[in-house]
Design a protein around this nucleic acid. Sequence first.
DNA 1: GTTCCCCTACTCGGATACACTTTGTCCGAGTATGATCGG
DNA 2: CCGATCATACTCGGACAAAGTGTATCCGAGTAGGGGAAC
Lengths: 143, 143
Amino acid sequence: MKLTKASTQAALALAYLSSRKDEGFIQARNVAEFLDAPTDSALKILQTLARRGLLQSQLGRSGGYRFSGDPDRVSLLHVVEAIDGPIVSDIRISTGPQVDRMVTVLQSACDHAAAHIREDLNHVTIADLAGKTTRNADLLLAV
Amino acid sequence: MKLTKASTQAALALAYLSSRKDEGFIQARNVAEFLDAPTDSALKILQTLARRGLLQSQLGRSGGYRFSGDPDRVSLLHVVEAIDGPIVSDIRISTGPQVDRMVTVLQSACDHAAAHIREDLNHVTIADLAGKTTRNADLLLAV
DNA sequence: GTTCCCCTACTCGGATACACTTTGTCCGAGTATGATCGG
DNA sequence: CCGATCATACTCGGACAAAGTGTATCCGAGTAGGGGAAC
């Protein structure tokens, strides 16, 4: 299981913004510094998150980004699927004549795996990342 | 969840060879035809499987490949990890100063997901693919 | 008939070129805020 | 004192280059079996 760099940074950025959600709009530059990444890279991630509704953006001179949701109700799954696209099963082969049934079995296994991934990612929230809850994070870390 | 083309073809090849395991060594060309793939591509996959011990290879004039194991004891997990490498959690970010704890939480979630993937893949065997068993395949297809 | 040698058919393993995905960077355009200027 | 205009600081969104990973193809080398020649 791998998280792309982009979705990892997206999760971290959301956690960062959620911890400063009372301070109004935070500029992309600040988020970039937190992520130790170029401003442009952070910008692209923040824009995507805003387009997907996970962040609010404000144009203009004192603009920036703000996390306005409930950190407990935004899961890693939302973040990853917003950035990398949906997690679905994917068999990269053109079904030949003899192998149809076999491919179906493989497909089924992948479907199960994909469902499990989604489930696992859905169990971790932005609040867990930000450490603003005692619900899951320490439990997870203890395992 | 995605299977690479190579590991998919590897699984299909193993299923094919397991269904003909009594016929001695099968040439790579025949496997390639079954997969509807170039001989060279099939060859590389077969070679890797042989190196990993999932197939036996025979040099020389009437050489080829043979599946000598128990189709019920070789799972998709073995195949995928033989071809694509081990399935492990993977966070592609250099841990910064402030984000250590967050990354640890992410890592934990990925670990869980990876374990689930391995579990799911381990439940499907070559025999399930080849249809030589009633144990799992139809069950899987029914879901 | 037996032994030796060569030819053929196949795998082995590395090397290389190609394609796709992910990542990093840049630039023009648009928008809200605050300052400045004119009435 | 008030309103219009302008400069500034930021986001938006696309476009593009660079890097990494997965895929396809090629080629020389090595090995086992069979056929033929020599004895």
